[in-house]
């Protein structure tokens, strides 16, 4: 299928700003789905609220646009209803780790089979540039006019320690890698987390004088390095990208099915 066959063309051009990284994530995700040979009916996409969450409106899957931070909670119900389908949950960094942080760690802990894509632009895009749990110390935002004193999460470490069984990080500059990572994340049986560093030139870029989308993508190119590279040893400030965790653990829906099979025949009290 052509890439555009996955798009609800009547809503294009989309609402995202020129150069917004979220568009690259959408572009890349389509190719991952296409490479996997999945039918549009095989995928349920559940999002919350934010610029990132608007992705559901544009893609021709089964799409559920929910509440700020709650996408994973809705998705949990959906997955238990349709364990046979692939569930993809794109989220903003605020969506996933601030208001939705609790749902995020618990979905990871349960290892329920779905793919969480965190489109990390380190800011609240939709509401106009307030700081998020990913903005980082010293960064500027409309609600941190004198510099942010909040420390940032590391999404990879958070997901990992919460129990996610597939954890990866990539950037919009590394879209080719992103395609491969998303393919693996989608087919992985368990809770997969893919953090994508995704530029918001309009707010994060402007507030922090990081230049336009091109400059921000160049900073992803220069500021990141594959996991375990020599460059990282020389320059610890580099952010690692690649697949950090990929392991098999009991998956929630499969385990619940086992319970049903076990107790269904048993005599009632």
């Amino acid at each position: 299928m052509a890439v555009r066959d996955y798009i609800r063309e009547r809503f294009m051009p989309h609402i995202w700003c020129p150069g917004c990284g979220h568009g690259i994530v959408m572009n890349t995700l389509i190719r991952a789905v296409e490479n996997l040979g999945l039918r549009k009916n095989d995928i349920i996409m559940v999002s919350g609220i934010g610029c990132s969450a608007r992705i559901t409106g544009y893609l021709d899957f089964h799409t559920l646009h929910t509440l700020h931070g709650r996408a994973l909670a809705f998705a949990t119900g959906v997955k238990l209803g349709r364990p046979d389908l692939h569930i993809i949950v794109p989220m903003g960094d605020g969506d996933a780790t601030a208001i939705g942080g609790n749902h995020f760690i618990h979905a990871a802990r349960r290892n329920i089979d779905m793919t969480a894509i965190i489109m990390n632009n380190r800011i609240y895009g939709m509401t106009g540039g307030q700081y998020s749990p990913l903005s980082g110390y010293g960064r500027m935002a409309t609600t941190a006019p004198y510099g942010n004193i909040d420390q940032a999460f590391d999404i990879v470490e958070l997901a990992w320690s919460a129990g996610a069984t597939f954890v990866a990080r990539t950037t919009t500059y590394h879209a080719h890698d992103m395609v491969t990572i998303l393919e693996k994340a989608i087919v992985h049986k368990g809770f997969s987390v893919v953090e994508v560093l995704s530029q918001c030139p309009t707010y994060y870029g402007r507030k922090n004088k990081l230049g336009d989308a091109v400059e921000m993508m160049k900073s992803y190119q220069k500021g990141t390095t594959p996991i375990g590279s020599n460059a990282k040893k020389q320059n610890p400030d580099l952010v690692e990208r690649g697949i950090f965790v990929q392991e098999e653990k009991p998956e929630y829906c499969t385990e619940y099915e086992k319970i049903i099979q076990k107790v269904k025949g048993e005599k009632q009290r």
Binding site: L64, R70, A73, F74, T76, G77, V78, L80, G81
Partner: peptide
């Protein structure tokens, strides 16, 4: 949220 998702 979960019951809404499942109901759908």
């Amino acid at each position: 949220c979960a019951i809404i998702g499942a109901s759908l």
